[in-house]
């Protein structure tokens, strides 16, 4: 996520729309990508992105300048994404059988020497599907968004050692998935 100046944050908190658009431009890629990796659906990810920015706009006047704006946005993003995921989890449970049927086909595709970009994205989604929402968020924030352990801990409001243990378990699950599908 790009840096945002304190002046822009101040203006946006006073309701200045062009200033808020600057915040959107700097943060929307991060917000949308995290949301997309959690919910796996473009429309839902756009819905989450809207929720995140409406929350940011409404809460901006209460935002204290001493805190890190990035971490604050990360936190709102992961909360909105995880809440949306949990709301739709029941529906997703029902489609598990269907997903399981298509895994074997996708795995076959994975073994091909050159994967298309679309196939590669499908493979990443498949890997993330093996993880619970907490582990998935840690992997997305670390492996895709490149956040440090401390930034992940601050975003999820958890201890840094919890970040370590979630990443460890997530990666063990990914290694096992790889062994099973070989």
């Amino acid at each position: 996520m790009q840096d945002i100046s304190a002046e822009i944050i101040q203006k946006a908190s006073e309701g200045d729309l062009p200033a808020f658009e600057n915040i959107y431009k700097a943060a929307s890629s991060f917000v949308f990508n995290v949301a997309f990796r959690v919910v796996h659906n473009r429309e839902e990810a756009e819905e989450v992105t809207q929720d995140v920015f409406m929350n940011v706009f409404r809460k901006l006047k209460d935002f204290r300048q001493q805190a890190s704006f990035k971490t604050w946005v990360y936190r709102i993003t992961v909360n909105c994404a995880i809440n949306h995921y949990r709301k739709t989890a029941e529906h997703k449970k029902r489609s598990v059988e269907f997903d399981e049927r298509i895994v074997s086909e996708k795995v076959f595709v994975k073994q091909e020497p050159a994967m298309t970009q679309e196939e590669h994205q499908g493979f990443i989604n498949e890997l993330l599907d093996n993880l619970n929402p907490d582990q998935r968020l840690c992997v997305v924030l670390r492996n895709i968004e490149g956040l440090s352990y401390q930034e992940i801990a601050d975003s999820l409001n958890i201890n840094i050692n919890t970040v370590r243990s979630r990443l460890k378990r997530a990666r063990e699950a990914l290694i096992n998935f790889n062994k099973v599908t070989k």
Binding site: E21, S29, N33, I175
Partner: peptide
């Protein structure tokens, strides 16, 4: 198995409608 698959992860861009609706 853990690092390489995510290195080439595509970055997605939200459609322009998202900002229009937020605005």
């Amino acid at each position: 198995t853990v690092v390489e698959p995510f290195i080439q992860a595509e970055r997605f861009v939200p459609s322009e409608n998202v900002w229009i609706e937020i605005k």
